[in-house]
Computed example of a mutant assay.
Amino acid sequence: MTNTVENKRAEYTAGMESKIAEMDTALQAVQAKFNELEDVKASGKQAVAEMEANKAQLKEEINFVTDLGEGKLLLQQVGEIEKDIELQAIVTQGQAVKIAGELEELFKTFYAVHASAKTFFSVLDKEYVETMSVRTLEEDTAKMSEYASKINTHFGVAGSTLIDAGIVGQGDRFYRTAQTAVHLGQTDLMTMGVNMKREMAKVKYQLNL
């Protein structure tokens, strides 16, 4: 392998590593924002549960009041809690909508980075296949398979998070935005080196190598 080919490989490989790193960052941002959304929902639910418990306690106390003034005060407190419960639901919904909007923007970023990584993978895979030798076949195929696995795994995690966030349904085939539509059931990436290894194994078998 000439220095020119080696340098080109090294340059392309470094580019692929950079794309993988970008995907890591984009997916981590998606997951962090999704966790923030879940925390807001859980916090709001917990707050409502506590207020409901307080309301139930006050209603229980009303059943045993012996003073009109005390009864009115308890009823007033129940009414205030009911208003607080309604307000808490509105606040939680508002926070969730805001964070969900931010989450969608992060999903758009991730899928843009993913598409770029896929394109770069195809270019690098072609370069590896055209320049690999019998000696480098195993190592080159392993490296490209590792890249493919990372890209495929990141895509799968993002898709699961889309479903968990309620942005798409379990059976939806596409995630659509104003700019594009992402096919959620797209075929996994696989390096062409896998087929070359298979063909090489056949040749070795025929030659008893």
Rank of each mutant, 00 (worst) to 15 (best):
I99H: 08
V194A: 11
K72G: 03
M16Q: 09
L74E: 00
K83E: 09
A117D: 01
T2V: 10
D24P: 04
I99T: 10
N7T: 04
T187Q: 12
D140V: 06
A181G: 06
S122D: 15
T66Y: 11
I81G: 03
G169M: 08
H154V: 05
V194L: 14
E199Y: 14
T4R: 13
E70A: 12
A49T: 09
A178F: 09
S116V: 00
A53H: 07
F64N: 10
L73A: 05
K204M: 15
G101L: 12
E80K: 04
G71Y: 08
G79M: 13
N195F: 11
L137C: 09
D172T: 02
T119W: 02
I151S: 01
E138W: 02
F121W: 08
F155S: 07
Q206W: 06
T191D: 07
L75R: 12
Q76R: 10
D24F: 10
V97L: 14
A100S: 15
E105V: 09
Q46Y: 10
L209M: 08
E6P: 00
I85S: 07
Q206K: 09
T177P: 11
N152R: 01
S116M: 01
A100H: 09
I163A: 07
K45H: 05
Q28F: 12
G44N: 02
V182E: 09
G44M: 09
G69S: 12
L37I: 05
K45Y: 04
G69A: 10
E70V: 10
F155Y: 09
G15S: 03
T4S: 15
K33H: 05
D67C: 05
A26Q: 00
K108F: 02
V203A: 05
L106G: 03
L103K: 01
I81Q: 08
D39A: 15
T136Q: 08
E38L: 04
M192K: 15
D164V: 10
L87F: 14
K59L: 15
K204D: 14
K19E: 11
S149K: 12
E61H: 01
E17W: 13
E38Y: 12
A32V: 03
V78S: 07
Y12W: 06
L74Q: 01
D172H: 01
V129R: 03
T119E: 15
I20C: 13
V113M: 01
T187I: 09
M1Y: 13
V168K: 03
A165I: 12
I151H: 00
Y175I: 02
H114N: 14
E38C: 03
L27G: 03
T66L: 14
N3F: 15
Q186K: 07
S133D: 12
G71F: 12
V182Y: 09
Y147A: 01
N152D: 14
L87H: 12
L87G: 04
G171F: 08
N35G: 01
Q77C: 10
V78D: 11
I20M: 14
A10H: 14
L207C: 06
N195T: 13
G159P: 00
L184S: 05
S145V: 04
K98W: 04
M144V: 02
K126P: 00
K197A: 10
G185M: 09
Y175C: 01
D164Y: 10
E60G: 05
T161C: 02
A26F: 00
Y12F: 15
T66D: 11
T25W: 02
R173M: 07
G69L: 15
E139D: 15
M196R: 07
A29L: 11
